[in-house]
Simulated assay, not measured.
Amino acid sequence: MGTLRRTLVFALLAAVGVTVAGPLRSYVFRSNLHPVVPGAVYRSAQPSGDVLTGWIDELSLRTVVNLRGRKSEDDRRWLLEEIAASERAGVEHVSIRMSAADVPPAQTLRRLVEVLDTAERPLLLHCKAGAERSALAAAVAVLLESGDLERARAEFALDKGFVEWVNPRLPRLLEDYAAWLTEQRVASSPERFRHWAMHEYAPYFYKARIEALDAPLQLATGAPATLRFRVTNTSRRPIPFQSARHEGVHLGARLASASGQQLELRGGFVDLALAPGASTELALELPALPAAGRWTMRVDLVDEGVKWFAALGSTPLDLPLEVAATP
């Protein structure tokens, strides 16, 4: 995506006759390095090991935050280079996996806030192109430092490589925060942003509370059961439940036995736009479980073809089941 975007930007510059000294010069040719909080926080594109070594010396960096994530036994060359450069300089290296195309899950935003609050500074935030994930992380750093929404919005800027019509989703995090401030009738501050990020933030409609109404924890093999749950929308947007089985939001459950058997269920097939703060009761048909013993059941909402709500930070309901053999 970064390489394609650079090519498109360069072609656009040539087409309109903008010179290299134009607003995108830093993005195209200079590793997109910019101060966020002068002397304390910087943002950039992916540096090579040698470039990072130079920046560590030049900027006195004490922490490098990689926003591209890190896998177990990760052997990507760019990551190995930057880890080696950080270790040689005695600099802390932190990896957080963020999407370049969408707002982060709630747990990822909380982790980013935690790192920005506790990591030794000066620190560098970087992604691949330095235009999207770095913009979002930089905006969060600005809000934690000053609470200034306009300064935070300025991190999503053309001179830093961000093109809103290419990716309109990331700035929505700031607009959701602004909407919450309006609802609360308060002004932005570092303390209020920190509270919102840690306790109030929910991407889109992916936040709900699930309570068991009629869900027996002891069952018998060969005996199906109907389980009932109350679902409350704790997000700021309506949850779009649908009766169609392969689209929209449904109630779901994943079951696993102690011996490794697994089962995935769906329920709640209703056409309903569940308003923020509203609740509804949904049923889940549990088939006869094939094996006696202990089972675990995780009940959650699922946006079909997209994500389970828990993947974006919503808290699922975990229930232990004891299945007895039928005499």
Rank of each mutant, 00 (worst) to 15 (best):
Q218F: 07
G260Q: 14
L213W: 05
V94D: 00
L181F: 02
F229M: 07
L227I: 04
R230M: 12
T226Y: 02
V302W: 09
P240W: 06
R153Q: 13
G54A: 11
G54M: 02
A324N: 14
R172E: 15
R294I: 13
L312M: 14
W165Q: 12
H34T: 03
E264V: 13
P23Y: 05
P327Q: 10
A244S: 11
K307V: 15
V163N: 03
P203R: 15
T221Y: 05
S259Y: 04
E82G: 01
L284T: 03
R254V: 13
R151N: 06
P35L: 06
T53L: 10
L301V: 09
L8C: 10
R25M: 05
D271M: 06
V28Y: 00
F162K: 06
M98E: 04
R192I: 08
A215K: 12
L174R: 11
V65L: 13
R151T: 08
A137D: 09
A178N: 11
V142Y: 08
G90R: 01
L52S: 00
A225H: 09
D74N: 08
I96W: 04
V51I: 10
T226Q: 14
H199K: 13
P23M: 12
L4G: 02
Y42W: 15
P287N: 03
S72C: 01
T7M: 12
A288P: 07
A325V: 09
S95F: 04
L123G: 01
A324K: 15
A154S: 15
L52K: 01
L265H: 09
A119N: 00
T7D: 06
L263P: 01
C127A: 07
T226K: 15
K160G: 12
G268I: 04
A325W: 05
G130Y: 10
H195C: 01
G222H: 12
E164Q: 09
A179T: 14
A131V: 07
A292G: 15
P47Y: 03
D75V: 12
G147H: 09
V302Q: 14
A253G: 10
P104L: 07
Y42K: 00
H199V: 13
P290D: 11
G260L: 13
I96T: 05
P23W: 07
G69V: 11
S26Y: 02
P38Y: 03
A215E: 07
S235P: 14
R5S: 05
R62I: 04
L282I: 12
F156W: 04
N66T: 06
P240K: 05
L59C: 04
Q46V: 00
L109T: 07
T280M: 08
S146G: 08
E175L: 13
S134V: 07
D74F: 09
K128M: 10
S48V: 08
M1K: 03
G277V: 14
R76N: 06
R153F: 11
L173K: 12
R194H: 11
L67N: 02
L112T: 08
R6M: 08
P190L: 11
K160H: 12
G49I: 09
I210W: 13
Q107I: 10
Q262T: 14
Y206F: 15
E114R: 13
S146H: 06
E322T: 15
H195L: 10
A288V: 02
P316L: 13
P316K: 12
R68H: 02
L265P: 04
S95M: 03
D159W: 09
R43W: 06
Y42N: 00
G222P: 12
W165K: 08
A131L: 11
L251R: 09
P38T: 01
G69I: 06
